[in-house]
C-alpha cells in the first residue's frame, strides 16, 4: 500500500492509497465467457470495497454492474466473493485487505451469473419459501400478544438476524455441486421458526428438511458460519435442526 499525502488544503490528513481491483466481468450481450479486468483507483481511510466498485462504475466504466442498496450491511444486496471469501462489499474495509496485490472481486458461486457481479437469486428465495418461513399456529388468536419469556425469545435469536444475502449458501461446497440442496440459509430460516415457542409447525418443517436434499447433505465444513456477515452460527443452527430430527424434540 502506497501512502499518498492529501491535498494541502485539507486541514487534517486523510491517508489515501492506491488499490487495484481485479473484477470478474461477464456481459451476456457481448461476452461468450467471463473475463478478468483490472482497475487501479485512489481510495481513502475507511473506504470499503463497495466504495471502490462505485468509484470504478461512476468514474471509469458505467457498465460495471452489481447490486447494492443500504451500504451498511443490513439489506443483504452486495454479497460477493472478495479475495476468494464471501463477504458483503459494503462491510469489507479496504484497509483490512492486503493492498500490495490486486483485490479480486467475483460473483458468489453456485448461482447463475446474469451480468458481472449480479447472479440469479430466484432459486435461493425459492428454497427459503419451501421451508414454510412463517409463524404457524392453531386455534383462535389471542386478544393481546402471545406470551413468550425472555429465555424462550433468546432460544432463536441468532437465526432472526439473517438478512438473506446468500453468503452462506453460496459458500457451501455441497450447494455448488448439488443444485437440489436447500442450502444453509433455508435451514437458518427454518430454525428461526422451529425453535420459536409460539410456533406449531416444527413437525412439518422438520419433515421437509428430512428430505434427501435437506439437512443430511450438510458435511459440517463451517464455510457458512465463516461467511455469515451477521455472525450467525449457521453450522450450529443446522446441527440443532439435525438433532431435533433425530430426537423429534425441539
Amino acid at each position: 500500500m502506497t501512502a499518498v499525502a492529501e491535498a494541502p488544503a485539507a486541514s487534517s490528513v486523510v491517508p489515501s492509497f492506491q488499490v487495484t481491483v481485479r473484477l470478474r466481468r461477464f456481459n451476456p450481450e457481448s461476452d461468450t465467457e467471463p473475463r478478468w479486468e483490472d482497475h487501479t483507483v485512489t481510495m481513502h481511510g475507511t473506504d470499503r470495497v463497495l466504495d471502490a466498485l462505485h468509484k470504478i462504475k461512476w468514474e471509469i466504466d458505467g457498465s460495471l454492474t452489481f447490486r447494492r442498496s443500504c451500504a451498511h450491511g443490513i439489506c443483504g444486496s452486495d454479497a460477493m466473493r472478495i479475495n476468494g471469501r464471501n463477504r458483503l462489499a459494503c462491510k469489507t474495509l479496504l484497509k483490512d485487505l492486503p493492498l500490495d496485490k490486486p483485490i479480486t472481486v467475483e460473483p458468489i458461486k453456485g448461482m447463475t451469473v446474469l451480468k458481472d457481479l449480479v447472479v440469479d437469486m430466484d432459486p435461493f428465495f425459492e428454497a427459503y419459501k419451501s421451508i414454510m418461513p412463517f409463524l404457524i399456529t392453531s386455534g383462535n388468536e389471542p386478544t393481546r400478544e402471545r406470551r413468550q419469556s425472555p429465555e424462550e425469545r433468546a432460544r432463536y435469536d441468532d437465526t432472526t438476524k439473517c438478512i438473506m444475502c446468500a453468503a452462506c449458501t453460496s459458500s457451501c461446497p455441497i450447494y455448488w455441486t448439488d443444485g437440489q440442496y436447500f442450502g444453509p440459509q433455508a435451514i437458518v430460516g427454518a430454525h428461526r421458526f422451529i425453535f420459536d415457542s409460539r410456533d406449531e409447525g416444527a413437525e412439518q418443517r422438520l419433515e421437509i428438511l428430512n428430505d434427501r436434499d435437506g439437512v443430511w447433505r450438510c458435511r459440517t465444513t463451517f464455510n457458512c458460519t465463516d461467511a455469515c456477515p451477521r455472525g450467525i452460527e449457521v453450522t450450529k443452527a443446522i446441527q440443532e435442526v439435525k438433532r431435533a430430527l433425530l430426537f423429534r424434540r425441539v
Partner: peptide
Amino acid sequence: VLDLEKMGLPFNRTPDGLI
C-alpha cells in the same frame, strides 16, 4: 403492534413475557 406480534415478529420481552 399486536398484529405484528401475531404474525410472528420476535419482539424483546418483559420478564412476564409481554412485549
